[in-house]
Amino acid sequence: MKEVLAYPANYWQTMYEIWLFISVIIYLVVFIPAAYFLVKYRYKKGINEKAQHAKESKALEVLWTIIPTIVVIYLATQSFAFYRVQRNAPEGAMEIKVTAFMWGWEFEYPNGKKVFSFFNGVVDPEKNVYLTPEKVNDMFKAYIPAGTPIKVLLTSRDVIHSFYVHPAKVTEDAVPGRITHMWFQVNKEGEYWVFCREYCGTQHSKMAAVLKVVPKEEFEKWLNQGVQTQNITDRQNL
């Protein structure tokens, strides 16, 4: 399990592969006989001008009712098993609170430290294009310790947004008046995108944030640097 970039993306990946495998088989099971019939029973002058009588087959009808039923119930049950893990944060996960707003994210860490990420923080102000994650100013980045499960408690200050952690393949809506939850863990250091996945108006497509995944010690150091004072001025940019 060492190489896994992020949890619970591994479950998503496995679910995806199971589904893809089954789907390709189903596609072929339909396509091959269809192609065969199309060629074999095509209209030919003098040879196949009229359809022959084909008897209805109860057995076939039952067959293609029962087998797909089994397949889909298997898929749903497999998904159920995975989903329990994908939904429920492991014990000892670090809890952060994320509050979405039009248009940006507020991250609050257990010790009260806050990071604000604004849509205009992730774009080049002159050209209005996305910066690469590395070019985004560090003060807008949410630091995350590598290899540590993070439980996110989500809510929103205005409209519905959705917190999508790109490497972890998981999204959950931030709904005003409710607290929703999700978890993820990134194992490899680096800078990763968070995107808003629920339409929220003009800057929806720029409502991103950068997760800066760093070694645990570095994270501790950063966390205890105290509340950054820039936040006040940033808020005025809103």
Partner: peptide, 15 residues
């Protein structure tokens, strides 16, 4: 079908 499976959907919902 996979969009009906939460284990897969959480990764592609609204994508």
């Amino acid at each position: 079908i996979p969009l009906g499976l939460p284990a897969f959907d959480i990764g592609v919902h609204d994508s």
